[in-house]
Amino acid sequence: MRKGAERMNKSRVTEYILAYMQEKGISASEISEQTQVPEEKLHPDYKEPLLAEEFLELCVFLQLSPEAIAKTIRK
């Protein structure tokens, strides 16, 4: 798969969560330990986007509103 094609398959929701983690200085290992979301899904080189249940678990842990994320990624 070409790099450009791979980038198109990335999840905007997952990308948002990763950017938020980086901005707040929260490590993937810390989040994974607390939420049971696989750590490999919390790194920039992830292969699979977050499942809905994982996304909601992260929103609760990070105190983020799914609605606010949806509005942001639509822009």
Rank of each mutant, 00 (worst) to 15 (best):
A70W: 08
M8C: 03
E57M: 11
E33T: 12
S29N: 09
L18A: 11
V60S: 09
S29L: 10
K75V: 01
Y16S: 02
E23F: 13
C59A: 03
M21W: 04
A19C: 09
K10V: 00
P49Y: 09
I17M: 14
R12G: 00
V60R: 13
A19W: 02
V13P: 02
A70L: 10
R7I: 13
K75H: 14
I69E: 02
S65A: 12
T35R: 10
M8S: 14
Y46P: 03
Q36E: 15
Q36A: 11
Y46E: 06
Q22S: 06
N9E: 05
A68W: 01
L18R: 08
R74N: 13
K47C: 05
L58R: 07
I73L: 03
F55V: 12
E67G: 07
I31W: 10
E57K: 14
K71I: 05
E6Y: 15
A52P: 01
E15C: 08
A68D: 13
V60T: 09
I17E: 02
V37I: 13
I26S: 05
P38S: 09
L18S: 08
E33G: 13
Y46M: 12
A70R: 11
E15W: 04
Y20R: 09
Q22P: 00
L62A: 08
N9A: 00
S32G: 15
E57T: 15
P38Y: 15
E53Q: 14
G4M: 04
Y20K: 11
L58A: 04
L62F: 10
H43M: 03
E57R: 11
E53T: 13
Q34C: 05
P66Q: 13
E67S: 02
E23G: 01
K10Y: 12
A28F: 09
Q36Y: 05
V37Q: 09
K71Y: 11
N9C: 08
S32R: 03
F55D: 02
A19D: 15
P44E: 03
E30V: 08
P66F: 10
K24H: 15
S11M: 06
E33R: 14
D45A: 02
Q22Y: 08
S29D: 11
M8V: 13
E33V: 10
E39L: 08
M8N: 02
A5G: 00
I26F: 01
Y20M: 07
P38A: 03
K3F: 07
S32K: 07
Q22V: 01
N9S: 05
F61M: 05
K3E: 12
Y20F: 15
T35Y: 12
Y46N: 06
A28G: 04
S27A: 05
Q63M: 08
Q22T: 06
E67A: 05
M21I: 07
